[in-house]
Structure formats: structure tokens, C-alpha cells
Design a protein around this nucleic acid. Sequence first.
DNA 1: CGACACTTTGAAGACGATCAACGCCGGTGG
DNA 2: CCACCGGCGTTGATCGTCTTCAAAGTGTCG
Lengths: 255, 255
Amino acid sequence: MSPMLLPNSVRDMSLFFGLTEKDRDDLLVEGSLRHYMRGQILFRHGEAVAQFYIVVVGLVQLYRENVDGSEKTIDLFRVGQTLCESEIMDACRHHRASAKAIDEVTVLVFSAAWLKNTAKKHIAFALNLLSLISKQAHLAEVEAEHQATLSAAQMVACFLQRICVLYDFDHRSFDLPYSKTLIASRLGIELETFSRALVKLKAQGVSVEGSHVRVSDLKRITQYVCSFCSVVNACSTHQELVNMSEDTASIKKVR
Amino acid sequence: MSPMLLPNSVRDMSLFFGLTEKDRDDLLVEGSLRHYMRGQILFRHGEAVAQFYIVVVGLVQLYRENVDGSEKTIDLFRVGQTLCESEIMDACRHHRASAKAIDEVTVLVFSAAWLKNTAKKHIAFALNLLSLISKQAHLAEVEAEHQATLSAAQMVACFLQRICVLYDFDHRSFDLPYSKTLIASRLGIELETFSRALVKLKAQGVSVEGSHVRVSDLKRITQYVCSFCSVVNACSTHQELVNMSEDTASIKKVR
DNA sequence: CGACACTTTGAAGACGATCAACGCCGGTGG
DNA sequence: CCACCGGCGTTGATCGTCTTCAAAGTGTCG
């Protein structure tokens, strides 16, 4: 697989910071591209953990099937995001959830051994991986906290903010990048609750028509969710995080 | 600080697996012991992240103060557990939560630079740290999922199981290691809800009188919470996890 | 014994889940 | 071209669960 063909969002991934271009490309060469049609399964809960994935095109859904057959979306991964790194580093032998393609998806696949060996071989890679997984751990903690403390409408508002940062959208006007059904599942709420939450957000200056979102008062919506939340959302990349953290104290004061 | 004085639960921490005893002790020497009285603050939300902590004695509460003054417990750390590793590796400059002593607490304190440098110097340490943080990320994910999908009674049952593994208690009869108020806060539910959840669990063969817990039917309570949950709870140490994962498939079938 | 922290219990209310009905839209097939 | 269908989203009604407020019970420690 020639690294030249990969989109910039993959070649510039934070995972490869601090490596020479040559080292990075030598590593990327060891991956192989794999395509999935809409709805196809990448891996299933319970199967052996054998591979590390980097999303190159499309959207991948990580989800769990409950005993009753319903699905709960754990997370959604877009271009430049990775799957299974924590399962591999955690020495977890079996997948803890299933993954499927939402769109037409292309992923770059590496063996689990590749990930471990690369971490051993390149200390910079190991530290980047640490940073990446730390960030995930933190996001998951915040998520757990939100589930416990925020109302549905607040979680939706928080999600909209996160979307803007992740996709680099204009915070005042943008289109939802995927269906409301999927968003509701991602947030752990029912579609009906999501729909009603959008109605409530109108009072906070957020209007959603179809898939188009317009936010009339950025400050109001930021205060509506906890201000801490907005810091988290803004810290999507390493560099942004470094910059943002300068301002954390002042944001705290503002609230 | 002489490593000889540290309890085994610290000297045998998974973080130092694969290092020689000498390397480990040389590293431990660089830490300094610090004592806190009941209720004293280790660090506050918003302060600069400067240190890495290993709990040597007592229980440390990580919590967030909401705008309205109420506290939400994010996690509780006992002997042999660590604080701030993910904040340090994540290059997060300011604490994302506050920490205080529940008991009388002793911690071993290292500079943030110590943690980063040790990871750079000893690849085994870096990999152990990766494993540790991966595990945390996973637990946090499961936690978020539980908050979204389980009832209060199920979360309490799940928590009791986790307690047993973490403290190596007899699963059939043990004492709660801390107050019900603290447990409720940890689970993100109100004390009243917690109390009522215990009443409901009587029907599942779990009786709690004062702080003493008796479980009459282990299988019933395991099935009451999702079976996936019990696998997670059991995977408290690296080695246990490696052993457990052998059985994951079979446990899945059982449910 | 009284003060105080911790816990339990009761009653009322808020919120989200669930079930049901309907509207909208794009595609398919007659 | 129209009828039908299925996927998606909205809205209404009802129900169960958790929170909130209030009161009372339990225990410990001075």
C-alpha cells in the first residue's frame, strides 16, 4: 500500500508526530486497505482482537448488541480516527463490541503485533499512542459524567458543539453529518427523546430543520451545557489542546 | 524515600512489570511521601497539572464540583492505584477535576516530568502505562454505557461485584469499604435512590444490613447485571485479564 | 443525654422510555 | 403516472424510574 495515496488526514495523524516522513511511510506501507459496503461488519463482539484499524474513508460505528437485540452505539469513527488500539494495548483478547460500516468505508488495517512492535520500536509513537488513549479515557470519563448529570437536551447541545469541532464546521450554521437516529443511539437516548430535545433547544436559540442546524446565540448555548464541556469539545487535537489549556482558567471564571 | 518501606501493593504494581527490581527501586526513590488528613485536598480543578500520584495508604476521591456547589464523584482510588497519569500524558495543563482524601491518606508523589521521562527511558514502563490507561479508557466506556442503559439497581449490583474483585472480598459476604453516601455519589445517583435500590436487590438475593452485604445466590445476581459487566469487573489486573479473556467466549454463551 | 452525621422512608414531581399514530420522502413496480 | 411501501422523523399519551423535598430513624461520640 503506497502511503502517497492516503488522504492528508491520515498521513498527518497525531499518532505519527515526531517520526520522520520516511519512518512514517515505512510503517504505513505495512498496512493494507480494505473496503466495506454500507452495513458490512468489520468485527463482532467476542471475536479475537487481531487488527488495528485507521479509517481512511467513511464512517464506522462501534456498537453493542443487547440481549434483546437492540443496538447501542458506543462511538462513531470518522476519517483519521482509529479503532482497537486500546483493546490491543490492554491485552484484551476478544472484541468488547462490534463495528460496522455506516457509509461506504475504507480502512487501513494493521496486525495487532504491528501496533505493539511500532510502540516498542519508536518511542515517539508510543508516547503519541499514550496521548491518544489518554484523551479517549478522558472523553469516556466525561461522557460517563454527562450521562449521569446532564439532561437529554444538554447532551444534545453538547454533542452539536463537539460535532462542530470534530468536523471543523461553522458553529453558527451546519448540516448534521449523519442521521438523527444514529445520533440518538450515540447519545444513549431514544429517537423520540432526541426529537423533543431539539424542540427544547429552540428556546436556547438552536433551530434544526431537517438536517440543517442554525445557532443564533453561541454564548447562550455554551452556558446551557456546562462550560467545562466546551473545553473538552474544543480539545480535539493535541495542538488545540495545548493552546486551549491556556484559557481553561479564564473560561472557568466566566461561568 | 526508601522503597523498602512501601507496601507490596505498591512495589508489585503492574506499572513496574518487566523492570528489574533495581530499576524499579531507583525510580521509586525519586518519589516523595506526602500525608493528608481526612478531607484535605490533593489538587483542585483548574490548577496546573504538576504531579503524578500513587496511593500508598487510604482512599482518594476524584470529584467535580458543579456550578450549584454539589459534588459528583468521578472515581475513588485505593492503595496501589494512580492519579493524573492520563492528564500528564494527554498534555493537559490543568486539572480536570479535584481530588481529596476520604481517609487519612498517604501518597507517593512524582513530578510530571518523572512520568514522561520514565516512559521514554523504559519501554516496558511505557507499555505498562499504555496498558493501564487503556484499561481505564475501557472502564470509563463501560461506565458511560452503564449510565445510559442500566437501572439504578443494576448499577448497584454491578458496583458490588466490582468491589469484591478490587478488594479481593468473598463474593458472598463482605463489608462495604466506604459509606453509602460516597457510593451513591460514585454511581451518579442520589442517596435515596441508592437506598431504594438496595431494597430492590433483596428480591435478587442480596441483603445489605448496615454496611454488611450478604449475597445468597451468586449466579442470579450475575445474570441480573449484564454478563459482559462481570467480565469487565473481573479484569482488574493485567494478569487476571489475560487469564479471563480465555473465558470470555464461554461466558458469552452462558448468558 | 444531646448533637450530629448518616441513612431510611414517604409523597410529589420531572424526565425519559415506550407504544401508537401520522406525515414526509424516495424508490419500486404496476 | 400513480399506488404502494419502507425508512425516517415528529407528535401525543401513558407509564415507570429517578430526583427532590420533607420527616423521621439509627448510630456514634462528646
